[in-house]
Nucleic acid binder design. Structure first.
Length: 283
DNA sequence: ATGGCAATGTTTCATTGA
């Protein structure tokens, strides 16, 4: 789908592109799910978290055969992030960087790349375990450093997406009373999310009317998915300059219904990029 | 108040996730 955009005296084509995030909880186990999902949903960019793979085990060839080029940063057992780019539309990720220069960290939670005139920042925020623990303190420090890093306005505009491990508001929580003050919902975590919003980032999901009780994660236990006992903790945030370009944002619950699912569902945003932003977009 | 489910490597249990 194309439309013309008048920009000064120049008439530039606009191009729809889709960008998605999915915590797969082991790419080794979930590779068939990812491949099937990409066949059904051939998004331009897919950001993965919790790949839990050493780089030498990353399934680069299988994804390349599907038409996706990958940038990835992994480690054994824990964490691991990847950016998949559809070769025939957005090309190959460039200017790839791993981590936050302001926060030296052994844990592979952050990978960034230029694609389609965007700076794509794929983040797996720390879980935090429980309020008051060392892991919780690490989570807050990690986010503070991310905010500091992103506070410097970047060119090109940024899409910050991934598993934030924060439910920003009570409407993102199936049982706000039970979760009040708990990790993922505590006030200090929500303040950190608000700090990202204060930088100008816009939650793409909330730009649109959404179904009530829309969540992106459900516990494996207690039939949580069947009861829709979930949280919305996976997010797509865009730079203010990009907000008018966002045409939709949705959560795809289908993969959560499969056998051996990830506990997270993919979140997808569609952007209508002006010609100058979509310089790398072809096809 | 507790555990419940899933994945991993340290593998027949402990650790972590959210």
């Amino acid at each position: 789908m194309r439309e013309a955009v008048i920009l000064g005296a120049t008439r530039l084509p606009a191009q729809a592109m889709q960008i998605a995030t999915w915590n797969v909880n082991s790419l080794r186990v979930r590779l068939p799910h990812v491949i099937d999902w990409l066949r059904a949903n051939p998004v331009d960019i897919l950001c993965l978290q919790e790949t839990k793979l050493r780089d030498e085990h990353f399934p680069h060839a299988a994804l390349a055969a599907l038409g996706y080029e990958s940038a990835f940063a992994g480690q054994p057992t824990y964490n691991g992030v990847a950016i998949l780019a559809r070769r025939d539309t957005v090309g190959v990720p460039s200017s790839v960087s791993v981590g936050n220069p302001l926060f030296p960290d052994e844990q592979k939670r952050l990978i960034s790349a230029d694609l389609a005139g965007l700076r794509v920042v794929n983040a797996y925020f720390p879980n935090g375990q429980a309020v008051g623990t060392d892991k919780y303190a690490y989570k807050l420090r990690w986010i503070d450093a991310l905010v500091d890093w992103l506070a410097t306005p970047a060119t090109p505009p940024v899409v910050l997406l991934g598993d934030f491990n924060i439910a920003p508001e009570d409407r993102d929580v199936h049982d706000p009373n039970a979760w009040e003050g708990q990790v993922l919902c505590s006030a200090p975590e929500r303040e950190r999310f608000a700090n990202l919003i204060a930088l100008g980032f816009v939650d793409a999901f909330r730009l649109f009317e959404q179904p009530p009780k829309a969540y992106s994660w459900w516990d494996y236990r207690q039939l949580a998915f069947r009861r829709n006992a979930g949280l919305r903790i996976d997010h797509i945030l865009v730079s203010p300059a990009l907000a008018p370009s966002v045409r939709g944002c949705r959560i795809d619950r289908k993969p959560r219904k499969r056998e051996q699912p990830s506990d997270h569902a993919p979140v997808i945003a569609e952007l209508m990029l002006a010609g100058n932003e979509a310089g790398a977009v072809r096809g």
